Simulated scan of single mutants.
Amino acid sequence: MSPILYYGVPSGCSFGSIVALEWSGQPYRLARVNMPEDMQTELFARINPVRETPALQTARGDCLAESMAIFNHIGAGQGALDAGISFKQGTREFDELNRMLAFLNTTFFGAFSSLWWQLEHEADDETKRVLTEYGRARVVRAHQELERMLGDQPWLLGDRRTLADAYFIGIARWTKYHDVVDRRDYPNLQRLFDKLEADPAVIFAHAIEQQRPATSVGRFEGEVGIAESLASRRAA
């Protein structure tokens, strides 16, 4: 049974996991999760009790949540190792990849949290102003740090693309929702963003999210519904 990635729309951070699966060359399926309505159902709670995306039903039928865990699961597969987007645990390269994934998951992803909250919830003008200013400071700092870490390297970890670049592109696009930073002020990040946006796997992930005709460059086996995915899990 091929794994099933539960990806959130619109613009979930699970976008990066789609890119990673495309790059890995392993067979997989996708299950679309409309946020927040699908996440609040008891059906989805059986997949992830925290009711968040992404989630991954593994080939064994287990359900795995949290982006870092999913990226490490994908990265442990032989396809990802052969593709050079991950490294064997215990190596220095693996530690560096984990460090970068952790930074993206905490500092970079987390910087947007107050901005998302004030966008998605009712609040008075003063509360929104405070949350926006707080978020702006965090997003600016995160971009400054990542700009410094990237430097003039072609990819986040050097000469080759890795799972970290896949995770980055799923989060970096959030600046279009929040007018608090201009990525052009960070030329290294803008260069990486533009290169990734032209990548066929990223183009595929955009098409999947937007429900347009999508051409996989990996081993995508089609989409399934949430209920159908649970039925296949029972069969496994």
Rank of each mutant, 00 (worst) to 15 (best):
Y186T: 02
F220I: 09
P3A: 11
V33D: 07
R32Q: 10
T107L: 03
I47D: 00
A137M: 07
F94P: 02
E122Q: 14
L146Y: 00
A59G: 12
P3R: 09
V217W: 06
D165P: 03
F168N: 00
A207Q: 13
I171F: 00
D125N: 08
W174I: 04
D82F: 09
E145D: 12
G110L: 02
S17I: 09
R51V: 07
N105D: 06
D125V: 04
F108C: 00
F94Q: 09
F220K: 01
R129N: 11
M68Q: 13
S11Q: 13
L30V: 14
S17E: 14
R32W: 05
G25Q: 04
D95L: 13
Y167R: 03
W174C: 01
Q40C: 12
H73L: 12
R148A: 11
K88M: 12
P10N: 14
S17Q: 14
L56D: 06
T106R: 05
D125E: 10
E37I: 15
L189W: 01
M100V: 05
G79Y: 07
E223D: 06
E223L: 06
P27M: 11
M149P: 00
A164M: 06
D38E: 11
W155G: 05
V217G: 04
A76V: 08
A123L: 04
E42S: 15
F220L: 05
H206K: 13
S24G: 06
